[in-house]
């Protein structure tokens, strides 16, 4: 109950803009400020061939994730079929269609980290946050991800929280590390 109420209260009421008045179904709920930023990106790349990945990358920076509406918006502006846009979005693991938490926790599952016990660290994170990799905590704070080798094997096992790297850690230290965020 509490969570639902919280969701309700945090849901912003964006100014609503109809793209097309006689087509009520295709109403785009526009978060104007963010769409304005996206428009600037699109203005720049509209006529540049092969710019889809760049535009999506910028869009994700602006919105935090690539919602259905954003993908369709990009597709229409660039004249690329929506199917192709989603094909790219779902291919690259850096893109996400789900809203992300404030912090993304990446647990390195590369060989070195794995051997040094990153499995246990992942288990600890899963039970402490109550989510599976790819999911976001209900309070919107953390998104949990596993990742391939991050190239810092000397610090194995490592996790990344946001832009911070935590190396040489054990499962027991997780609770303490999380208190910093």
């Amino acid at each position: 109950m509490r969570v639902e109420e919280q969701n309700k209260s945090t849901k912003k009421t964006h100014p609503v803009k109809y793209k097309d008045n006689d087509l009520q179904q295709t109403v785009i709920v526009k978060d104007d400020e963010k769409y304005e930023k996206l428009d600037l990106v699109l203005d720049e790349y509209e006529d540049v061939e092969g710019s889809l990945v760049t535009v999506l990358h910028q869009a994700q920076k602006i919105f935090g994730h690539l919602s259905r509406d954003v993908q369709i918006y990009v597709a229409e502006r660039l004249g690329v079929p929506f199917a192709e846009v989603y094909g790219v979005v779902s291919f690259y693991s850096l893109f996400t269609v789900q809203p992300r938490g404030e912090y993304t926790i990446e647990v390195c599952m590369g060989t070195a980290c794995y051997v040094k016990g990153s499995g246990k660290i992942l288990e600890k994170l899963k039970s402490q946050l109550g989510i599976e990799p790819g999911e976001t905590t209900e309070d919107g704070k953390y998104t949990l991800e596993t990742t391939r080798c991050l190239g810092a094997c000397s610090l194995a096992p490592i996790i990344k929280i946001g832009d911070d790297v935590h190396g040489n850690i054990t499962a027991e230290q997780i609770s303490e590390i999380l208190t910093k965020y």
């Binding site: 259905r68 993908q71 079929p81 199917a83 846009v85 989603y86 094909g87």
Partner: peptide, 24 residues
């Protein structure tokens, strides 16, 4: 895409999980 030009299909997802389908 080429013959009908409705372009509704593409590959969804990656690797083992991929399949041809409309977006999302």
């Amino acid at each position: 895409k080429e013959v009908v030009t409705a372009s509704i299909y593409d590959i969804n997802e990656r690797g083992f999980h991929s399949f041809a389908a409309p977006a999302m």
